[in-house]
Nucleic acid binder design. Sequence first.
DNA 1: TCAGACCCTGAAGCTACTATAGAGTCAACC
DNA 2: GGTTGACTCTATAGTAGCTTCAGGGTCTGA
Lengths: 154, 154
Amino acid sequence: MKIGELANAAGCTVATIRYYEREGLLPPPARSAGNYRLYTREHADQLGFIRNCRAFDMTHAEIRALLRFRNAPDEDCEGVNTLLEEHLRHVETRIDELQRLKTQLQELRGHCLRVQATRDCGILNELAQNVPEPKENAADANVNAPHCHVHGTH
Amino acid sequence: MKIGELANAAGCTVATIRYYEREGLLPPPARSAGNYRLYTREHADQLGFIRNCRAFDMTHAEIRALLRFRNAPDEDCEGVNTLLEEHLRHVETRIDELQRLKTQLQELRGHCLRVQATRDCGILNELAQNVPEPKENAADANVNAPHCHVHGTH
DNA sequence: TCAGACCCTGAAGCTACTATAGAGTCAACC
DNA sequence: GGTTGACTCTATAGTAGCTTCAGGGTCTGA
């Protein structure tokens, strides 16, 4: 099948598929006489696997690791379990951080409850203050725990 | 004050300060005879404001908007309130997404509860399946709601 | 033969920084 | 006067996971 069909089947763009090939997540397929990529069922399966992993928000490094396990069917799967648990912990950590952030944002929101001149706006004034409390969020968390790949709000 | 002192005071790196200048978040300061940046109290205040906003995980675009309000003290602050509420909604959306993701990851984790050959690993087999459920996460959310800047787990 | 849909490569853009290379500045010490 | 070391400068590239663009080639049907 051609790249457009594969993209359709997998629910992603052709650019994404070419990108995965460059990244080594997807093996380079055969080419037609006109230099078009020609994919097999195995490519489609592997791409499905990758897209499922991405839907679980795994990084390419994590997916590469899982693909290695998948290509070594006789090895034991302890590493798979470990990887999943670590990923889960990252997600939980990020949830905690965002929940703290939410609380702080709600507090900040409460500093201005009506429309007034910006010079009197409690929110802007609060942001101009030394507010050292919201410190446990993404940027700092990444500094403190460099192995945690869970990042900012945006 | 020189850039190193400012960085120390603001709790960020000199590279970050130079980056903010390039990005237009901080106005270019005067220079010494030896071409060193010389910052004033106003610069320090504005940098503090920016760092506070960043601690709330706001984007540079959001911060730029807030700085514009800050520099127009006679305008009304409705836009500030709106911006904050939208930011809060983004955070809440992201929390919901991550919580759904967490549930799905726990479910996935349950598919393999002992160490076995990877060919039999329930997790890998599940990931090789058509699993269309974890669809509401970052990648798709960004497609569906292009204005939501809350992104992935990593 | 021509339009239109599809495909190709290579490079740049996105976000908020961080890191590196190679060079200049400045104060203190000998 | 020379040297050391801390600090600063600019320019450039790298990070993650794509998306978008420019400038072209391929293929199919009318």
